[in-house]
């Protein structure tokens, strides 16, 4: 062995390459870790509520047991309002998604109408949600129309811009290979564009669900006499802070449930995509 070789072999591996320098993988898979973290945060919050309730009156911070009782009362007596809110949420999110996909797709595929559509979307994103809510109250008498309108004008830009970005991010290589078979515009859409933007739809859906829930509740508070928002308004005006907490608790559960549902659909729809974990 030459001296050079011996010297090379004697050198320690660079710090970045030593196994001990790499962060260790957790014991749990990503989903399990998420669930455990959520449970831990809930326990900490309940503990904080319990401690705080010992120092302040019940109408400011009720103990968790009172909130749980109020939650049970709501679940058994006010389930129709939960259902109404859910139906409104599903209808408006589904319609916003479809309209957003159509607008985003048109922006991505038709250069002539892109500037006009983009201008409309950008202006829409600049209008505060509250303005839309107040305008909806003036413009529409039917509460369902008001809420549907409010959610649609707020949510459509998220989907449209995301789909537009998705189309712009289409790899040129894949466009070339599909075009080498001389497809029609519809075939390009079917075989290339639509499958490519599906992850963008899921990403946007996961991003807007929490926001959509907040908006539907807010819209119900302003523009309707039914649904979770209106019941929260009633609880506030009758000083039932335990019910306000209970509704909030249910909304958080609703959000987690919907996020989980969307994530499950995403896993099924995007089974072709390998899960990558960065160490």
């Amino acid at each position: 062995m030459t001296d050079d070789k011996a010297a090379t072999l004697a050198l320690p591996a660079p710090a970045a390459l030593r196994p001990s320098a790499l962060p260790k993988r957790g014991k749990f898979k990503m989903g399990q870790a998420d669930a455990l973290s959520t449970a831990a945060v809930v326990i900490v919050l309940l503990g904080a509520m319990q401690i705080a309730s010992n120092f302040v009156p019940d109408y400011i911070m009720p103990p968790p047991a009172t909130v749980l009782r109020a939650t049970w009362d709501i679940v058994t007596a006010d389930e129709l309002h939960v259902l109404i809110t859910l139906v409104r949420l599903f209808a408006s999110v589904a319609f916003s998604m479809l309209l957003g996909i159509v607008i985003g797709g048109a922006m991505g595929m038709f250069g002539t109408i892109r500037p006009a559509l983009r201008a409309v979307i950008v202006i829409d994103t600049g209008i505060p949600a509250l303005s839309w809510m107040l305008l909806a109250v003036f413009w529409f008498r039917d509460p369902e129309t008001r809420i549907f309108f409010i959610l649609t004008v707020i949510l459509v830009p998220f989907f449209a811009l995301s789909i537009y970005d998705g189309i712009r991010a289409l790899p040129r290589d894949l466009v070339d290979v599909v075009e080498s078979f001389r497809p029609s515009r519809w075939q390009v859409l079917r075989f290339l564009v639509i499958p490519h933007v599906v992850p963008y739809v899921f990403l946007t859906m996961k991003s807007v669900i929490g926001y959509a829930i907040r908006m539907v509740v807010f819209a119900e508070l302003v523009a309707s006499a039914s649904g979770i928002g209106s019941r929260m308004s009633l609880a506030q005006s009758t000083f039932r802070i335990d019910q306000v907490f209970a509704w909030t608790f249910l909304l958080v559960l609703l959000n987690i449930g919907l996020q989980t549902g969307v994530s499950m659909c995403e896993r099924i729809a995007l089974k072709w995509r390998p899960e990558v974990e960065v160490r």
Partner: peptide, 26 residues
């Protein structure tokens, strides 16, 4: 005509057979 490129350029959301049948479906 058909082209085979330098990189495979397979559509990642399609399986091997779905990629192989792409041109035929078009």
């Amino acid at each position: 005509i058909a082209v085979s490129f330098q990189t495979d350029r397979l559509l990642p959301w399609r399986t091997a057979v779905e990629n192989a049948e792409l041109g035929l479906l078009i």
